[in-house]
Design a protein around this nucleic acid. Structure first.
Lengths: 356, 356
DNA sequence: ACTAATTTTGAAAGCCCTTCCATAGATGTA
DNA sequence: TACATCTATGGAAGGGCTTTCAAAATTAGT
């Protein structure tokens, strides 16, 4: 039914090789022949058969992405960036949303063999070591985003440093008693944010009160959710311990839950408790959250660019791109009361920068 | 590098046909041969080449999805449903996120030819009539979700009826002066929700005040966004007209913007103004929004199931599955003050039902 | 005008599978 | 034992493309 190059060749009275060359913009075709082929092709409404091309070319113009789906808002933004970047490049994206960690292996295995996908984007999860060897053998380009792995190109957010900036910001506002609401500690970003938080406190000789530091413990989810924030805060409240004057929360969406739990006890943010969180999702603006912005959309774009780059230049040693999240000061930290949110770049440390 | 069936055949001392049969679970192979082939295959770490399979089988075990990406929250949920449904079926998903309407045609054209994808999920946008003929000729199964097209299987939310239920709910709470904040009127759901709203008012002999009915007018976006809700409400407030006692808002995310705009003028929800919206995204619970729930996740699952069904049974006439959204009563409508949200099924009309 | 160098062209080979068809082998029947 | 019937198996064909290679056509050179 669908037209093939053979149909075009017949109608245009040329060989299939010539048709192929025209369609692939090979220079060695006369303008005359080219025009004839093109006109026949468009008359027949020809579309190349992607799979046949992939088979013959040994590459598919398709990228794979393995993304944890359970962490909504962050990935949507990243995905947008990926999509936009891909659009201009003519690559397709096969999306593998991971709900349970067990699925990772299966997806990787699926994507493994050369020719199937030209490259893999791997997000926010520990890359299974079992596959590192095979990936290298098969020479499949991989970019790991939001996680570090020494064997691959990585795009990492400086979570520890981000947490430090956030905590330091609270301290500089005069807070000396600060708690933290964290996501699931099995997640690397959560781990790093916690350590950045603690380190800053000890560095400033402030007390670390474990009873006001709570990590999510859900097994199925990574804890970057409103419910997780809400529950964690409730847990602290139920302990009846002395509340700190400020909380560092490991994500905006959790902060929304935290604020909600506090509100139910009549505790206002920022009047009674200051809050600084992480991510800067769209809603953060609405909630006037002071937060550490991760350039999510840009990370998506960057990931694609890096992957394409890696596809074109295999063999060079893996690179690490780190992104320092940027402090966005709004009202939840109590630093400003004005209606409209603004950035305050206290100094260079606070500004986002990309290191190669 | 990667092992092929020829490698397996050689090592197992059988023909390629037999290898293929084993791998495809054809019954006509001795257990003995089967075991031998399987053991060699797993020793060589064999993975079938998806594209070669697709080429030979004339189907790809891949589905395409064309989704407007600009409308976040709704589609994330739907996507989750799709992913989960797909996982068990062994299909891959190629995702095409549409940012501008112009991209639709390109994506469809890409997906068009038989063999490339086994079926197409098309979301929430008018299906371009230019392609209807070709799709039929090529016999590509298509499911249209959240939009109606007579030529394809459709899964539609009863927007008009949903709006009626929402409006009726406000009326039954005693409101007689009701406004509406709508998304972009170029979107079909927005159109339908508006007409359901108006119809209910006239049916109840209530006044329709055009100055308190605002639709988003952004050209680039569909208006289902927080900003859109915020701006629309601001617009009404700036007109200095008499505010109604209640608003029907065409989506939760807009409602959040609406509430925000109202709050800036010291107008409280639901105390001063009642709000009922549409969707029931995750955040609706947090905001205590009374809303018309669309079973987004289920719609994703359903879409996949319907598509698979259509792939297996081509030729049968297109079906229409309609979903009546369900009223979820929380606090924003002023009907209840309690802490915890609950459903109230006033009567059967209010409950979600699926008609075939 | 005739040969050499160059460019353009046609068609075969190959990518990795599935499927069909013919053959070899096994089983059953008289 | 001989013959028909079935079943398991090997391998060719085919799917639609790219790419290579050799042949044909063109251009240049003398």
């Amino acid at each position: 039914m669908a037209a093939t190059i053979y149909d075009i060749a017949r109608e245009a009275k040329v060989g299939i090789g010539t048709v192929s060359r025209v369609l692939n913009n090979s220079p060695k075709v006369t303008q005359q022949t080219r025009d004839r082929v093109i006109s026949v092709a468009s008359r027949l409404n020809y579309q190349p058969h992607a799979f046949a091309q992939a088979l013959a070319r040994k590459r598919s113009n398709t990228l794979g992405a393995i993304i944890p789906f359970f962490t909504n808002y962050f990935f949507i933004e990243v995905l947008k960036g990926i999509q936009d970047a891909l659009l201009n490049l003519g690559y397709d994206l096969i999306l593998h949303g991971v709900n349970h960690r067990d699925q990772i292996n299966e997806y990787i295995r699926k994507n493994l063999k050369k020719g199937r996908i030209d490259g893999l984007l791997f997000f926010s999860m520990p890359f299974p070591d079992t596959f590192v060897e095979v990936i290298k053998q098969e020479e499949i380009p991989v970019i790991v985003i939001d996680y570090f792995h020494p064997s691959f190109d990585c795009i990492c957010v400086k979570n520890t440093e981000g947490a430090m900036v956030a905590t330091q910001h609270l301290i500089s506002l005069g807070h000396t008693d600060i708690g933290m609401i964290n996501a699931n500690i099995t997640s690397e970003p959560a781990k790093d944010r916690l350590s950045g938080f603690k380190e800053t406190l000890s560095h400033q000789n402030l007390q670390i009160r474990d009873e006001i530091i709570v990590s999510s413990i859900s097994r199925k989810q990574d804890g970057f959710s409103r419910d997780s924030g809400y529950t964690s805060m409730k847990e602290i409240l139920s302990k009846k311990v002395k509340l700190p004057t400020a909380f560092f929360v490991s994500s905006d969406i959790q902060a929304i839950g935290v604020i909600s739990a506090l509100a139910e006890e009549g505790i206002r943010v920022p009047d009674d408790v200051a809050v600084v969180s992480f991510d800067d999702i769209e809603l953060a603006r609405h909630f006037e959250l002071t937060t550490m912005r991760q350039p999510m959309y840009d990370m998506g774009v960057m990931a694609v660019e890096k992957l394409i780059d890696r596809i074109k230049n295999p063999g060079t040693p893996p690179t690490l791109t780190t992104i320092l999240p940027k402090l966005i000061v709004r009202k939840s930290c109590g630093a400003r009361k004005s209606e409209h949110a603004e950035f305050i770049d206290h100094n260079t440390l606070y500004s986002s920068e990309i290191e190669k």
